[in-house]
Design a protein around this nucleic acid. Structure first.
Lengths: 199, 199
DNA sequence: AATCGTTTAAAACATTTGTTTGCTATTCTA
DNA sequence: TAGAATAGCAAACAAATGTTTTAAACGATT
């Protein structure tokens, strides 16, 4: 075991919460995986929920950094939109089963939702919506496009696969199919769906 | 209270499971809402999971009937595709917060997943994919369209809003915006995204 | 070396969970 | 009508959970 108990708890909690969700993970299980005692969860994080909150915040910080790179502010809006989709897929590739933690929170909010999730989602949604607005103004997307709806549909396509998980992926996609071409497919559908000129 | 205890349990369980999910709903809570005793859950359904399974099966039967009407087999494939989207939205409108139960199961499978969810999803996915294939063959959708990916993206757009629930809808869409025009927006994006001629 | 605050573990604790056990009332049947 | 089966409930039960308590080990500082 390397790292402090606190760090190990955080890492173990992250893995277990990601895989099974908040409710189906017990503090004893986390502590066991971290090679620590169950009491240390309350000691360091004030309880199970505090640990969960810490995990969520850690993830959002990473996602923020990630989007900071894939959606550069100084680039044209259409590039930021593409960066959103590609960045999301790349992040997932680097952290399998992790986005499910966030999405699970979107589907079934815990008390953390309002304090840690909403602000971050609002931020990303804001960037996405304004990028779309700018693209409309700049003539890259069709006049009359509703930024909120367009953002929602883009987020839908980009998130759903990860949300429904490998099991459901198996049912809809072919069993051994990779997600290789999906970001491009999404962008193509998005572009043709709301664009007024070919990319 | 009307109906037998068994029926009342089923109705209460359906409402509570839909709203809060399996883990966060206790049998005492269900029994209380049904005006019955907690023991009756084990008595009639063999346990909490049995009751949950019964609820899921009931919902799928309804959804099946619903899709049977909105996706008529004797109509052209593009109409079935439209029927999928409109039917899903209509079903949701009639049963708010209910599709979340199914989607929650997709995101976090319980033991019921393999036995009750997979077969039904496979069925719908099959219909969707073959409708898309036929549309491609018939010239309504672009040559080279991948039916599996197209079906996945359509399902993504149609399901995500309901999955993330009212709370997250608030964040992405405007607060008081209705879902009125969404099915048409989805179909437009889908058509333009993978169609080769305007609808 | 003694003392203080921090860290860790084991055990005890209080709750909540789903389920089972008896027992009572009702309903159907012979 | 007598008896058996079913329906329903309150209470008891066992297991699991998150948390608190208690105490021991450790490390730095004086």
């Amino acid at each position: 075991m390397d790292g402090s108990v606190k760090e190990r708890l955080l890492a173990a909690a992250r893995a277990l919460f990601s895989e099974k969700g908040f409710d189906r993970t017990s503090v004893r299980e986390i502590a066991g995986a971290a090679g620590a005692n169950a009491a240390s969860v309350s000691y360091y994080f004030g309880g199970k929920e505090g640990l969960y909150r810490a995990v969520l915040e850690e993830i959002w910080e990473e996602l923020k950094r990630h989007f900071g790179k894939s959606m550069p502010e100084n680039r044209p809006p259409m590039e930021r939109i593409e960066g959103f989709v590609r960045g999301l897929f790349a992040f997932h590739a680097a952290n399998p089963s992790l986005i499910r933690l966030i999405n699970r929170e979107l589907a079934d909010p815990t008390p953390c939702f309002e304090t840690v999730i909403v602000p971050h989602v609002e931020r990303i949604a804001g960037i996405l919506k304004s990028s779309i607005s700018e693209s409309v103004a700049g003539g890259d997307l069709r006049e009359g496009t509703d930024p909120a709806i367009a953002a929602l549909l883009l987020a839908s396509m980009s998130n759903y696969v990860f949300l429904v998980g490998p099991v459901a992926r198996r049912v809809i996609l072919d069993p051994e199919r990779s997600l290789e071409g999906l970001p491009e497919a999404i962008l193509t559908v998005f572009r043709k769906g709301v664009a007024c000129r070919e990319a």
